[in-house]
Design a protein around this nucleic acid. Sequence first.
RNA 1: GUGCCCGUAGCUCAAUUGGAUAGAGCAUCUGACUACGAAUCAGAAGGUUGGGAGUUCGACUCUCUCCGGGCACGCCA
Length: 570
Amino acid sequence: MLYHDLLKKELFDYINSEYSKKNIKEVPKQSSFNIEIPSNKKFGDVSTNIAMVFAKKIGLPPRDLALKISKYMDKENFIEKVEVVGPGFLNIFFKKSFWQDQLKFYFKSINSLNYNIKKKNICLEFVSANPTGLMHIGHARGAVFGDTIASILEEVGHKVTREYYINDAGEQIKKLKKTINFHSKSRNNKNIKTDDELYPGEYLKEISEKIFSEKLSEPMFENKIIKFIMNDIKEDLLKIKIVHDSFVSEKECSSKKNVDEILKKLDQKKLTYYGYQEKPKSSNNETWEKKKLLLFKSQEFGDETDRALIKSNGELTYFMTDIIYHQKKIDKRYDILLNIWGSDHSGYVKRLQSALEQLNKKTDYTFEIKLTSLVNLLNGKQVLKMSKREGNYVTLREVVEKVGSDVLRYMMISRSVDKKIDFDFEIFKSKSKDNPVFYIQYAYARCMSLISIYEKTFNTSLKNIDLMQVNLSNLNLNEEIIMIIKVCNFFNVIIKAAKFYEPHRIANYLFDIAKDFHAYWGLGKVDSSKKVIIDKDCNISLSRIVLILSISMIIRKGMNILKIECPENM
RNA sequence: GUGCCCGUAGCUCAAUUGGAUAGAGCAUCUGACUACGAAUCAGAAGGUUGGGAGUUCGACUCUCUCCGGGCACGCCA
């Protein structure tokens, strides 16, 4: 059993027995206390705050409860000692043999870990870039972040649908059509004036060439444009290893039947009315005039104004179709709706949330939105200026060509999502420790190299050895125990990353374990008895090879989740 | 003006979601190649966590306030 589960069970059993002794009717919550590997080794191999969490309920001072628990735990034969420190921390030191057993457990089950999490059906919507042009570097962050979250959630046992919502309706699409039409006309007539209302850039000119070489009639034409652009978007996504399971069209959401259904429900709750809006604060438009339109009473839920559902010309707003789209997902009985949006949509979150809350019971669904902060591209120290209006933004495809998928993916998830990223090309072109991707990959390659050296030195193949039977009791060096603990911490990292939707934990962990490995490797430089492979001692070499193999398996597993390559030779 | 996010070492970021002496990398200085891959390692130095107040056993983390930066504030998406 994993140390984490083992301890959790032991400690929890004790709390339960205290509860029944004191006749407390309430059931203690297992999730309310922590078992952590502290950053400072002085505080034990593992530390828990359990006594401080349950002290009040049980009616003892935290330190007294901690002392009782420590006496109870001390009897366990895998425990070296238990200390009660500070306000009531329990610091647990394991016997080395326990960690050696744990390593074996990990070695056996790394590819089939049981995270003990209740399986949920999750719809993860991400990317959803408008099909009006190529994706830029900002989209890359949401794309990689979303995809990695999906992998992590799958790793811990959930079922995830990766979904893309295609905004193939509304004003943006009208503008797109106008742009394509303009390009086709201006091919024959160079005197046609350009129009401010068009999308800039060469890309749509190319699309227009494609469209008109196929000589399509008007109704087919719109679908074809979107199809072409979506194909390019999918191609770009594939280059960074992202494949969606499902594409949902905004146009198809906005059928009359769907609209009537939602409006009827909102109407029954008296949440809609025909009215007018104030002139928007941000607008300098002097031609703005008051017009009657159908509004949702979002002010009742803390919004600063009521929001439009149906425009004055009878068309649906984005808000309206978005309600329908999300309601459909809830009707499909997903347990969790998780959306990844750019932070520029932050103001929109509240109104959608409140609309869905009015249409559903709270227990029917969980709706969460993660917002990704923006990305600056740097060239050395210089920020590359981008403007969508001028059409000179850096596309995702250009960045992938420059640095490759691995570096892009790592960069996009190595920082917590609510911090802006300064993406420096110079650093990520380098093949040194400056570049964490190379550093981690190098650690893996070194592991592989050690294994082949072992096989050569002792003229054998690991395939012919039953590694589960290898004696690990000579993994005694402090550095070795530290490495083992680090390996065992993988489990916690994944659980936390899944729980809080924080993939950067995995990226940091991999860098960290790579660092410890390089340090371990470096010991052999100073003291040849600490080399992994010692020519005269087949046994200790083999024990160390099991440790090295475990490290390499962890790195590979982590890199697989991040979808970053792990070459055996570099 | 209002709402949301950010502010941690010279720079770029962590900090187990309220835990113990706030940790890494880069840059700087010092040391290690007759090589288990130096694409590396070891050591030193670097901090009033933007300022102030509060909440409690305990605050980078929560609350309030001020300062600085970003993003929004449409019948666009």
